[in-house]
């Protein structure tokens, strides 16, 4: 009996040594054998070379060269042996139908449908209970698994650590005076105590000299700037990358990730690219000691859009 269709009772296939099916593909087998041998010897030398290169130093190029030549030489020799010197045939193998006979199919589906159906139909309640139990287990198991992964978002995405009176500091905690920024200069700042915190990152840009507020093309924000300095959330409203490129000539902020362009003089409205909303603006003020503070938090969630955002 045989499941692959090969008869085990028939004569075993025999071939003569000089059967052309066993002949090498190469016209000059001796030359190819010599070439394969040379290739493999080079390979062995290369691999030994890798050992030496590894032993005596840590020079990446030497390691790669020796290992590469070694493995390639060995591999080329073996592949040439296989391709040019081993029996090429052509040999043939018959395919066999994948599908079983109709009787076998009937028997299979009968076993599933009838035998299985019989026991399930006879004890419908037990089957139902087991299915219910498995489903309940699945749902219940998913909850602790999911909930242990992280907190619920709650209001986290809506608020930052900027409050009225938050001290404006650099990432290393240094407070910032308006004079720290030259015209055209930019600085990344955080509320004191939250240096380096991603959602709080804010970019200050000095648009003009002197103490007058910047006249922005956005109504109702006339007192949000001080000493010609304007502050925007540095998180792109597209995908949250830091909007880190400032073009002084056009007063535009560019996000290097997907090239959204924001017009700094017009309340950072997106001029171009995939960003959908302006960068939220931080209202700025100067305290009695002459340092920059925020006169309020952001009036909207910073960064990319999300479902709960109204």
């Amino acid at each position: 009996m045989s499941d692959d269709g090969r008869s085990t009772t028939g004569p075993l296939p025999v071939a003569a040594l000089d059967d052309p099916h066993l002949a090498p593909y190469a016209k000059r087998p001796q030359a190819v054998a010599a070439a394969a041998a040379i290739s493999m010897v080079i390979g062995i030398i290369g691999i030994i070379g890798f050992g030496v290169a590894f032993w005596v130093g840590n020079q990446t190029q030497w390691q790669a060269a020796t290992l590469g030549v070694g493995l390639f030489g060995l591999g080329f020799g073996v592949a040439a042996w296989g391709k040019y010197l081993m029996p090429q045939g052509p040999f043939v193998e018959e395919r066999h139908d994948f599908h079983s006979t109709d009787d076998e199919r009937d028997a299979m589906s009968a076993a599933v449908v009838e035998r299985g159906g019989l026991v399930v139909k006879r004890r419908k309640v037990l089957g139902g209970l087991f299915a219910l139990g498995s489903a309940v287990f699945g749902v219940v198991a998913a909850f602790p698994l999911l909930r242990s992964l992280g907190p619920k978002p709650g209001r986290t995405l809506f608020v930052t650590n900027w409050r009225a009176g938050s001290r404006v500091v650099t990432v290393d905690g240094r407070r910032v005076r308006p004079s720290d920024l030259e015209v055209g200069g930019v600085l990344t700042v955080f509320p004191q105590g939250h240096e380096g915190n991603s959602p709080d990152q804010t970019i200050l840009i000095r648009l003009q000299a002197g103490q007058e507020p910047v006249v922005l093309e956005s109504p109702g924000r006339s007192d949000w700037t001080v000493h010609g300095i304007v502050g925007y959330s540095k998180m792109c409203t597209h995908l949250g990358c830091p909007v880190g490129l400032y073009q002084e000539q056009t007063t535009e902020l560019v996000c290097p990730c997907h090239q959204s362009v924001f017009n700094v003089r017009a309340g950072a409205v997106p001029q171009f690219g995939p960003a959908p909303r302006p960068l939220p603006q931080l209202p700025l003020a100067v305290d009695a000691a002459g340092y920059l503070v925020s006169s309020g938090g952001y009036d909207q969630p910073v960064g990319p859009g999300f479902w709960e955002r109204p």
Partner: peptide, 16 residues
């Protein structure tokens, strides 16, 4: 094309 032979008969036969 022929099936893959099992045994190789070492006495040459002229099949070419």
């Amino acid at each position: 094309a022929i099936p893959v032979p099992t045994f190789i008969d070492l006495t040459p036969r002229h099949l070419a």
